[in-house]
Amino acid sequence: MNIFRLAGDMTHLVSVLVLLLKIHTIKSCAGISLKTQELYALVFTTRYLDLFTDYISLYNTVMKLIFLGSSFSIVWYIRRHKIVRRSYDKDQDTFRHYFIVLPCLVLALLIHHKFTFKEVMWTFSLYLEAVAILPQLVLLQRTRNIDNLTGQYVFLLGAYRALYILNWIYRHYTEPHYVHWITWIAGIVQTLLYADFFYYYFQSWKNNVKLQLPA
C-alpha cells in the first residue's frame, strides 16, 4: 500500500458515499444517471469475484464490501425507492448499456493476461470502469444543469483514477516485476475521459460560476 493508492481509495470511497448520502438525504437523484450507476455495480461485481476466494487483507475485503454495498444501494434507491425514483429522468438517461458492455466484453475476450473466467471478468471490469461514466457525462451535457454535489461526485471519481495512475507509477519503480499494461491503458483512457470535465469544472470553480458543459 502506498499513499497514492490510499488517497485514491479514500477519494473513491468519498465519491460513492457523497452520492449515496445526497440521494438518501434529499430523496432525489436529479442529474444522476442510473445507467452509470448500474454499470458501476457491474464493474464491482465482475472485479470482486475473488471476494470470498482470495483473502488479501481486512482493508481490501472491507472496502470491496463497501463499494459493492454502496453501488447496489444507489441502484436500488433510484429504481425502487418510492420518492427517489420520481426524480429519475429516464427520458434523458437513454444511453444503451450494451453499447458499452458488449465492446468491453469482446475486448476482454480478445485482450487479457490469462484466459480464465476470473481473469477475463477482471479485465472486463477494468475496461468497463474506464467508460462507465459516459452515460453520466452525456446526461450532464443534456440536462446542462450540474448541481454541485453531482459535479463533486464526477470530479472525485476522476480524481481517484488519476491518483491510481500515480500509484502504478510508484509501484512500477518500487516493485520490479510489477508491470500491468492493461491496467495502465484502461486507467489512462478513463482519466482522459474525465479530462474535459475537469477542465470545465476548474473553469467554473476559478471563475466562481455555475458549472456548464458545452452542448
Partner: peptide
C-alpha cells in the same frame, strides 16, 4: 509474490 500484479488493488 502471492498476488499477480494489481490484483491486490481495488
Amino acid at each position: 509474490k502471492g498476488q499477480p500484479q494489481s490484483h491486490d488493488e481495488l
